[in-house]
Design a protein around this nucleic acid. Sequence first.
DNA 1: ATAATTGTTATACAGATAATATAACAAATA
DNA 2: TATTTGTTATATTATCTGTATAACAATTAT
Lengths: 131, 131
Amino acid sequence: MFIQIEPQSDVPIYEQVTRKIMEGIARGEMKPGDTLPSVRNLAADLGVNMHTVNKSYHELEEKGIITIRAKSGAIIRSAEERALTTEQLQQIEKNLKPVVVEGMVLGATAEQIEHMIKKVFSDLQIPAEGV
Amino acid sequence: MFIQIEPQSDVPIYEQVTRKIMEGIARGEMKPGDTLPSVRNLAADLGVNMHTVNKSYHELEEKGIITIRAKSGAIIRSAEERALTTEQLQQIEKNLKPVVVEGMVLGATAEQIEHMIKKVFSDLQIPAEGV
DNA sequence: ATAATTGTTATACAGATAATATAACAAATA
DNA sequence: TATTTGTTATATTATCTGTATAACAATTAT
């Protein structure tokens, strides 16, 4: 697997793994139905402990992104299976708020921030509406 | 001061304080040149330790939002003093990315996310361009 | 000038989190 | 049947979070 970890980051390793996998899915490198590598294999690839990867997988499951089949493996859920709930929308907004507020206070305009979001989308090669 | 803390949140107290102060500035409740309450006073108001508030203030200073005058007090920097640097823009984008990616993977569109950002702006009663 | 306030620094402590290290278990798979 | 899988358990180390005191020196108020 293609994941690269920054050991001295302030972001915990398990969180980095979670994000990288989400990025992989967003990029389309991993598709619904695909099986994630076993926690032992991925841990060995990254040079980290099994439990660290296991924690990531459970975080992804809690977010509704994957399904863990006990003693079998983890598969990526399809878009239908993970239909966006209002709770999830609220959670996204909750996560978004402090970042946007900080940008505002530093002097960024709504246009600048919206531009960044389009950039994130385009960097992941997912066409955003009207771009 | 008007800050309310959630003791059992997964967000550290010092981070909550930092965010609430940024919100206050974004709302215009606190303006550039204004003095923040002393770390001891605010800590007493919130019922937390002095060092916890002190950590928030230093985080705000590191972000370029306030200036701490040693043994005197902390004042909010003006928009001119904190002119948005490219590094700060990159930092905002860096903070924005994982949140946006998660939204994408969960099925949110760029339009939905942009709408949330406009909502954050409007909730803080700061008019966003073209809204 | 004196007293109070301020951020700073230092030390110590307790609790939670992060990460690693082994190990064994039971179900699923080869 | 043997291997692989996630699960569970225990233990250890390090870092982070938060509190608790205390003293210091500069600023500010009286």
